[in-house]
């Protein structure tokens, strides 16, 4: 098989394993859906003082899609790769003629596809349950932002595995990093209610920039959306490149424990 055919081969099996794993289906698929339903139900009908005032649900749909993209890529990859590494599955794969980049490309492709599916699912739920318009006319921009962000957070997730010593440590480390940043970056709490110092702090990290880029692409201009936010997207991409370099340098294929 040629390189790309081999990536497609790897991707097919990764997809199977992903959808059969109850943990990945719950945390990556169900959790964002439940969050959107809770936020939409609790805060629905209110307005957020962002960009001249928009409906709360208009705010939360792109916010939770942002979370689901990070969850499908960074969180899901960091966890599943650490588990596979400690199980010895990565080491076994390295003993075959499969080139290492093929394995990684299959996994990253898998997580980007899951991110696309999550965006579609949440957009449809937002449309049906809360009347949040799906911005079809901006689909190319939205997909561009999603793919850049998903690839960047996938690289960060792969890099993060180097800092996770064991299977048991994976979930606590990943959540300790991501959950506070979701709050500080305006994903859970609309940014009109966050002190500017918090926003400035969150601006150091990629989540806030990705959220802004995605929000700008998703929320139509009439309701306060801006054009594509190249500045934010560039910062996300730079984070992705840093993640990639760290991953290339520090990723390991053999178990850390035992």
């Amino acid at each position: 098989m040629s390189g790309l055919a081999l990536v497609a081969h790897q991707f097919r099996y990764d997809q199977k394993a992903f959808w059969r794993n109850p943990a990945s289906v719950f945390f990556t698929v169900m959790f964002p859906v439940v969050l959107l339903l809770i936020f939409g139900t609790v805060f629905g009908g209110q307005t957020v003082n962002v960009r001249g005032g928009i409906k709360t649900t208009t705010y939360y749909v792109p916010a939770i899609i942002t979370l689901s993209i990070i969850s499908a890529t960074m969180q899901s990859l960091a966890m599943s790769l650490v588990i596979a590494r400690e199980d010895g599955r990565l080491k076994r794969g390295r003993g075959t003629p499969m080139p290492p980049w093929v394995f990684i490309a299959g996994r990253v492709g898998n997580s980007i596809v899951v991110a696309l599916i999550m965006m579609a699912l949440l957009a449809v739920i937002g449309r049906i349950a809360y009347g949040v318009a799906i911005p079809w006319e901006r689909l190319p921009e939205i997909v561009l932002v999603l793919v850049v962000g998903a690839a960047a957070f996938a690289c960060l997730g792969i890099a993060l595995t180097a800092a996770i010593p064991s299977q048991d440590a994976a979930a606590p480390i990943v959540n300790a990093l991501l959950l506070p940043l979701y709050f500080l970056s305006g994903v859970f709490i609309p940014d009109d209610q966050l002190p500017s110092g918090v926003i400035h702090f969150a601006d150091i990290f990629p989540i806030r920039h990705f959220f802004e880029a995605f929000f700008d692409a998703y929320v139509p201009a009439g309701a306060g959306g801006a054009a594509i936010s190249w500045g934010n997207l560039a910062i996300v991409a730079i984070w992705g490149v840093v993640g990639l370099l760290l991953a290339v340098r520090f990723f390991r294929w053999t178990p850390r424990s035992g």
Partner: peptide, 20 residues
């Protein structure tokens, strides 16, 4: 020591590796 992908069947695990 090396565990297998718990969610792939015997035939699928072999199919995955056959592709390599």
């Amino acid at each position: 020591s090396g565990r297998l992908d718990p969610y792939l069947s015997v035939r699928e695990s072999l199919g995955l590796y056959a592709g390599y």
